[in-house]
Simulated assay, not measured.
Amino acid sequence: MTGQRADARRNYARILAVAEAEVAERGADASLEHIARTAGVGSATVRRHFPNRRALLEAVFHERIEALRVRAEALTEAEDSRAALLTWLHELVAYSVSARGFADTLTYEPPSDTPSSCATALEDSGAPLLRRAQRDGAVAPGITPHDLLTLGIGIALATEHHEDPEAQAERLFAVVVEGVSPGGGWG
């Protein structure tokens, strides 16, 4: 956004704030036209800043992705590599369950071969934790960062309409942990 006019920066911030509220309320299918109307701009202005739905959704969740990246980085210093990986994965699942539309953003695939930058950032963040846990023998060697992200997304999507999504996600997370890293349990 460097070099943009002041009104363009204000429009971007207003669109993003409205989009965050709309996605929180309606999920990943929030109407771009409604976002434009509520932000007081035209649809073309929204598309100029966010050329497609995925770009808008990734902007909405950018700060949380960054927080999860920073958290993964901090956990690489933890003494117990298994606990570090599972703590980060648990935080990813908890956020995915609590933030409507987040799991959809990670799985959203427009007609292109470009992977989700959110998903790529999360896989890249978790990879060092996974490699360390694998090196320590705490996690099976064939598991990939993509596998872990897919499991986290799956838990979020599977519990989205459950009566108590957080509790159900906790239960499913414990089941996944036993399959990913048997013997230690979770929580």
Score class of each variant (00 low, 15 high):
Met1Cys: 03
Thr2Pro: 05
Gly3Cys: 09
Gly3Lys: 10
Gln4Lys: 15
Gln4His: 15
Arg5Gly: 15
Arg5Gln: 15
Ala6Gln: 14
Ala6Met: 10
Asp7Glu: 12
Asp7Met: 03
Arg10Phe: 03
Arg10Trp: 07
Tyr12Ala: 02
Tyr12Leu: 06
Ala13Cys: 02
Ala17His: 05
Glu22Asp: 03
Arg26Phe: 04
Arg26Leu: 08
Ala28Leu: 06
Ala30Tyr: 06
Glu33Trp: 13
Glu33Cys: 12
Arg37Pro: 02
Thr45Ala: 02
Arg47Tyr: 14
Phe50Glu: 09
Pro51Arg: 05
Ala55Tyr: 08
Ala55Lys: 15
Leu57Val: 14
Phe61Pro: 07
Glu63Phe: 14
Glu63Cys: 09
Leu68Trp: 14
Arg69Trp: 15
Arg71Lys: 11
Ala72Asn: 09
Ala78Pro: 01
Glu79Trp: 13
Arg82Cys: 08
Ala84His: 09
Leu85Lys: 07
Thr87Gly: 00
Trp88Leu: 11
Trp88His: 06
Trp88Glu: 10
Trp88Ala: 05
Glu91Asp: 11
Leu92Trp: 12
Val93Tyr: 00
Ala94Pro: 08
Ala94Leu: 04
Ser96Tyr: 06
Ser98Cys: 03
Ala99Glu: 07
Arg100Ala: 05
Gly101Arg: 10
Ala103Arg: 12
Thr105His: 01
Thr105Ile: 04
Leu106Val: 13
Glu109Trp: 13
Pro111Trp: 13
Asp113Trp: 08
Thr114Tyr: 07
Ser116Pro: 10
Ala121Asp: 05
Ala138Arg: 05
Ala138Lys: 09
Ala138Gly: 02
Val139Tyr: 04
Ala140Thr: 02
Gly142Thr: 10
Ile143Asn: 14
Pro145Gln: 04
Pro145Cys: 03
Asp147Ile: 01
Leu148Gln: 09
Leu149Ser: 03
Thr150Arg: 00
Thr150Cys: 00
Ile153Trp: 04
Ile153Arg: 02
Ile155Met: 13
Ala156His: 06
Ala158Leu: 03
His161Leu: 09
Glu163Gly: 04
Asp164Pro: 01
Asp164Met: 12
Glu166Arg: 09
Glu166Pro: 01
Ala169Gly: 09
Ala169Asp: 02
Glu170Arg: 15
Leu172Tyr: 03
Leu172Met: 08
Val176Cys: 15
Val177Asn: 10
Glu178Thr: 14
Gly179Cys: 11
Val180Ala: 02
Ser181Glu: 02
Ser181Tyr: 08
Ser181Lys: 08
Gly185Val: 08
Trp186Glu: 03
Gly187His: 14
Gly187Trp: 12
